[in-house]
């Protein structure tokens, strides 16, 4: 059995990955929506998104709608795989004991 994914296992990053993973592949979610769904602050969210982006697990796109800046995030293919692996690890741990 694979070990835990240290980047994803942190509580907020796990919730970010779970939220993005529930969307169809390639579907983006606005930063503000994600923040509201998870009840996180701007700073907290930005820190964890940066860690996930650095690992290549999420992608971030910044653009403008009119004059308003917009940030959208989505789970990359490696991110989806890492999330699936980590959840499988957690399930195995519960089923098999350790």
């Amino acid at each position: 059995m694979d070990g835990p994914d240290e980047i994803i296992h942190q509580s907020m990053r796990l919730r970010i990955a779970a939220t993005l993973n529930a969307l169809p592949h390639g579907e983006q979610l606005e930063f503000n929506k994600l923040k509201a769904v998870l009840g996180a602050t701007d700073g907290n969210m930005a820190t964890h998104l940066a860690a996930l982006e650095k690992a290549g697990y999420i992608a971030i796109q910044k653009d403008f709608v009119g004059k308003k800046p917009r940030t959208r995030v989505w789970l990359t293919r490696p991110g989806r795989k890492a999330f699936d692996r980590h959840v499988a690890y957690l399930r195995e741990l519960l089923d098999g004991g350790s």
């Binding site: 070990g3 835990p4 240290e6 296992h9 509580s11 796990l14 919730r15 779970a18 939220t19 993973n21 529930a22 969307l23 979610l29 929506k33 769904v37 998870l38 959840v87 690890y89 957690l90 399930r91 741990l93 519960l94 004991g97 350790s98």
Partner: peptide
């Protein structure tokens, strides 16, 4: 890094809650 069974259960609960919430909001 070690993960206990309790932590694993809690993490899976968080995963389930986050997934359910975004699916509902998307709908």
């Amino acid at each position: 890094m070690t993960v206990t069974r309790e932590e694993a259960a809690k993490a899976l609960e968080e995963v389930s809650r986050a997934s359910d919430r975004i699916v509902t909001l998307k709908g």
